[in-house]
Amino acid sequence: MNAENMFKEVMETQQEIALATSVEGQPNVRIVNFLYDPERKVVYFSTFKGNEKVAELQANPLVALTTVIKGDESDHVRILKGTAKPSEKSLQDLAEAWIAKMPFYAEIIESGGEHLQVYEIGFEQATVISGMTFRENITV
């Protein structure tokens, strides 16, 4: 198995991450849809402006995440040391990529796009996991 290839495939095909924030030692995890930009090496997600997640990220931008496994899948990616910040990219800037990966996102963009803020997560290392026996750290 090649960890770099597995990383690319997981990030291209899986649609959700469990995103963990932490404020004053209290962790908070939620599921969000995501995009990965291999050129910029960032994970994008959108969230409603001014919600609890935004306040948590303003208080502490350090995050962890894992891709969400569906069905019989076992391959997933974990990122333990990510930093989230508001992106300079808008939802419209990323619309084509969102819709190519998740066609249902067209309706989200159309119906609520003006209420959403795009964030990006930068990171340098990821752990690629497959089943019970394969685990490898890679530098991105």
Rank of each mutant, 00 (worst) to 15 (best):
G112T: 12
E114R: 15
A20M: 06
I109D: 07
G25R: 06
M11I: 09
M102Q: 12
Q117F: 01
L57I: 13
G71P: 02
S74P: 00
V23A: 07
F134D: 15
Y36C: 02
T133I: 10
M1W: 09
T13F: 09
E4Q: 10
F134P: 10
E56H: 13
Q125M: 13
G71H: 11
N28I: 04
D37Y: 04
E39I: 11
V29T: 08
Q58G: 03
E73F: 03
S87C: 07
A64K: 03
K101Y: 07
S46T: 14
E24L: 06
I69V: 15
E73M: 10
A64V: 01
F134W: 13
K70E: 15
Y44H: 07
E39G: 00
E9W: 12
T13D: 11
V68T: 11
L80F: 14
F45L: 06
T127S: 08
V54C: 13
A84P: 00
A95S: 14
E96C: 01
F48P: 00
M1L: 11
H115A: 14
N51P: 09
E52C: 06
A97K: 02
E88A: 13
T127V: 15
F104C: 02
F123I: 13
I17E: 02
A18Y: 06
V32Q: 07
Q92C: 01
V42Q: 04
